[in-house]
């Protein structure tokens, strides 16, 4: 059954089976997200796409649209909560943008620009996460992982290799490589795998192409992610 919901006071039409996020985007209304990807089922872990439906917080990537829903998304309150989520992601990892090859193409950074995050507000954890440069074509820099599981999902569901996984819980959660040695070089991972190009941040990086596009001329240097992502999915 198709229907209509109200998003920030504006009517949005949807088709049966669409989530709030899908329907909103199809109608030209951007909702920030990180772990959501159009090629995969919703993951619902980053919570950046939270909206309020009837006063309750829900993940708009995971909840199916229903006729007559009253939804708040682009409000100072919800954007403030989204900013706090980003700030927590920034302090939990080591996100040093000036020395990161992904800077300007990074979705975490782009969401921080989008939501006008100027500082991480909390105290930094400065976790110790050594990099893995063992693979001939790919560098793994765990410092920047935000646990969106896109590489885990792509490697398992598309490449059929299950090379990545998250292990442990809570603050000890981290990305691991499915090899006895734990090193990417000891797996059959290829730079052509879907998982090699899906990381929204700077964890999985191809070698020997660093800074081919200069800082300042990259995707989100010029346009906010709200515009880029709407153009891409149109």
């Amino acid at each position: 059954m198709n229907g209509r919901f109200m998003l920030d006071g504006q009517p949005v039409m949807f088709e049966e089976g669409q989530t709030i996020l899908q329907a909103a985007k199809a109608a030209g209304h951007y909702i920030p997200s990180l772990c959501w990807h159009p090629d995969f089922p919703p993951h619902g872990s980053c919570k950046l796409c939270i909206v309020k439906v009837g006063g309750r917080h829900v993940s708009s990537c995971a909840l199916q649209a229903k006729d007559g829903m009253e939804i708040e998304s682009n409000t100072p309150e919800i954007n403030g909560e989204r900013r706090a989520l980003l700030q927590m992601l920034f302090v939990e990892g080591n996100h040093f943008c000036p020395s990161c090859e992904k800077s300007g193409n990074c979705e975490l950074q782009a969401q921080a620009y989008e939501l006008e995050m100027t500082s991480a507000r909390f105290n930094y954890f400065f976790p110790v996460r050594p990099v893995d440069a063992s693979h001939p074509d790919i560098l793994l820099d765990f410092n920047r992982c935000i646990f969106c599981e896109l590489c885990v999902r792509a490697s398992r569901d598309i490449d059929g290799k299950s090379i990545f996984a998250l292990t442990n819980r809570g603050i000890h959660k981290h990305l691991v490589v499915n090899a006895e040695s734990g090193r990417l070089g000891d797996t059959d991972f290829s730079a052509l795998d879907r998982a090699a190009s899906i990381c929204p941040v700077g964890v999985i990086l191809p070698k020997r192409v660093g800074f081919a596009v200069p800082i300042g001329e990259r995707i989100y240097d010029e346009k906010p992610i709200s515009l880029v992502s709407m153009e891409k999915e149109r």
Partner: peptide
């Protein structure tokens, strides 16, 4: 006012933190 990456997150010098 914190001006620049180092004042805001430690920046390059903070890469000795590990």
């Amino acid at each position: 006012v914190a001006v620049g990456a180092c004042a805001i997150n430690g920046g390059l010098p903070a890469q000795r933190n590990h």
